[in-house]
Write a protein that binds this DNA or RNA. Structure first.
Lengths: 197, 197
DNA sequence: AGCACAATTCAACACATGGTGAAAAACGTC
DNA sequence: GACGTTTTTCACCATGTGTTGAATTGTGCT
């Protein structure tokens, strides 16, 4: 039911709709859902606020449009799992950083996580994302007691994301991905397969 | 320059000011700064919105009042550091959980961290809190290369806080403090004193 | 040129929010 | 009871927000 049904623009012409979406994504990523205003998005795209509504409907609709991420976590994690538990910590981190450091993907993820933590909407991660999406995948990687190991892995990964991307703590934010993998990989490996009290 | 200068209320009487502050603290902790409205705080305390202003001034003032935490991080960490690096990982975690699991302290900390992550105000943590407050303290605990080790410790601790308190992921949120200490302590110890690539 | 349709802007509404100043109510003291 | 003080409410204001519908401009087609 979108407006854009017919043939595309002529090549070279600016795609205003895409620019608005990019501006929205950036604002959601930086300021979260509540901190983002339609007017600010419109201004940042050099456009009238009404146009934003014309293209995307309500602010909620704009948000879910900005959340659209060109990556399926299951596809990213599949090869990590397929290679078995040896060195899985490093591979897991590598895959993660590969996605998060991709400038085409990062703003959408950032918007999602920032808004998730900002409001109380953690219920979504708690009830859907972790148990349904990431839980089953990681289950193939842990040695045993997934109910204990998965939250440990999750807590370390969440900490990395918050420190490196949301808070941009130096030097964590500037550290090359390989260094992060080398230093945190063994810890993840320990959480996945090491001895647990 | 507050209004409350003269002698206190008679014992047993309800302290409206304190109730308003508690309501504000709870709302800031749950919904963050932007998600909190003066009207909602007033309603939750069963009071007129103007009274909130009368007691606390602006919304910013109310926020800093809600942030007041009866704990100095330096005092909490001092004994951890004094005992030296052996088992520092466990002691660090223990001290941390002791503070965060204290229901008298938690809402204030939650409000602080939630709002810090929600907006872009991470600059405060980045530029003041970590380097000025926690950095020097932890510097006495790390074996060497504090610029690398401290962010690693920080990322794991941040992950714990976000997973356990902000997102309340099960079973991390329900795990007894001792279990957390037993399972994450060795990792922190490794970040503090272990071999690093 | 004229037409159909998409892209874009304009002007405005309804509402929620932070904030203010004066009035009223409650309370202790003499 | 009359007073000063504190506590609490009332009635507004200015502003920013999401949203809407009509109007305007632009573009391609015949």
């Amino acid at each position: 039911m979108t407006t854009r049904t017919s043939r595309g623009r002529r090549p070279g012409a600016p795609d205003t709709r895409a620019e608005v979406l990019a501006a929205a994504r950036a604002s959601f990523a930086e300021k979260g859902f509540r901190g983002t205003t339609i007017r600010a998005v419109a201004a940042s795209a050099g456009v009238d606020p009404a146009l934003v509504h014309h293209y995307f409907g309500s602010k909620d609709d704009l948000f879910v449009a900005a959340l659209e991420i060109p990556v399926d976590p299951r596809e990213v994690l599949a090869p990590v799992v397929a290679a078995g538990p040896d060195g899985a910590g490093e591979r897991l981190l590598s895959a993660f950083l590969g996605v998060w450091d991709d400038p085409a993907i990062q703003p959408g993820l950032l918007a999602m996580v920032r808004s998730l933590i900002a409001d109380d909407s953690g219920g979504l991660v708690r009830d859907a994302f972790i148990p349904v999406v990431v839980g089953p995948v990681l289950a193939g990687l842990v040695a045993d007691r997934p109910d204990v190991r998965i939250p440990l892995v999750a807590s370390q990964v969440v900490g990395l994301i918050v420190a490196r991307y949301l808070l941009a703590l130096p030097p964590m934010a500037q550290m090359p991905a390989e260094d992060v993998v080398a230093r945190m990989g063994p810890v993840l490996q320990h959480y996945l397969t090491g001895d647990l009290p």
